[in-house]
Computed example of a mutant assay.
Amino acid sequence: MGILSGLLSLPLAPVRGTVWIAEQVLDEAERQYYDAGALRRQLEEVALARDSGDLDDAEADALEEQLITRLIEANRRSRESHG
């Protein structure tokens, strides 16, 4: 039955491959989006931009809030994956 089921499911191989690739891309995108080191660097950049006057307080506050929210989620994900 293994050969028969393999032959019958062969037309679905491209779909399974495409799904696997999409999952890999999503995993990598999430890894980069929630990278704690990158988020901390971005927070530092926002602080520097605020200090230099490139960002006003409202813009900087909004960016910091978004980055801190992502950093909290990154820490939660890290705790969940480590036990």
Rank of each mutant, 00 (worst) to 15 (best):
M1D: 15
I3Y: 13
I3M: 09
L4I: 09
G6D: 04
G6N: 06
L7V: 13
L7M: 11
L7Q: 12
L8Y: 08
L8V: 13
L8I: 12
L8D: 09
S9T: 12
L10E: 11
P11Y: 09
L12H: 15
L12R: 13
A13R: 10
A13Q: 10
P14M: 11
P14G: 13
P14S: 12
V15F: 10
V15H: 09
V15W: 09
R16T: 10
G17Y: 14
T18G: 15
T18H: 10
V19I: 08
I21T: 09
A22G: 10
E23D: 11
E23R: 15
E23S: 11
Q24E: 07
V25I: 08
V25A: 05
L26P: 01
L26W: 13
D27Q: 05
E28R: 06
A29H: 03
E30D: 00
R31D: 03
Q32S: 02
Q32A: 05
Y33G: 02
Y33V: 00
Y33K: 02
Y33N: 00
Y34H: 14
Y34K: 04
Y34C: 07
D35V: 02
D35G: 06
A36S: 13
A36T: 10
A36V: 13
G37F: 02
A38L: 01
A38C: 04
A38V: 02
L39E: 11
L39R: 14
R40K: 08
R41Y: 04
R41G: 00
R41I: 02
Q42W: 03
L43M: 04
E45M: 00
A47C: 09
A47Y: 13
L48I: 04
L48W: 15
L48N: 08
A49I: 04
A49T: 05
R50N: 03
R50S: 01
D51H: 07
D51P: 13
S52A: 06
S52T: 09
G53C: 00
G53Q: 02
D54M: 00
D54C: 00
L55P: 03
D56W: 04
D56C: 05
D61T: 07
D61I: 08
D61A: 09
L63M: 06
L63H: 01
L63W: 06
E64C: 06
E64Y: 02
E65G: 02
Q66T: 03
L67I: 01
L67W: 06
I68W: 08
I68L: 03
I68N: 02
I68C: 07
I68M: 03
T69V: 07
T69K: 06
T69A: 12
T69H: 09
T69D: 07
R70V: 02
L71W: 14
L71K: 06
L71R: 15
L71D: 12
E73S: 05
A74D: 05
A74K: 11
N75Q: 10
N75H: 14
N75L: 11
R76N: 12
R76Y: 15
R76C: 05
R77T: 09
S78F: 15
S78N: 13
S78M: 14
E80M: 10
S81E: 04
H82E: 14
G83T: 03
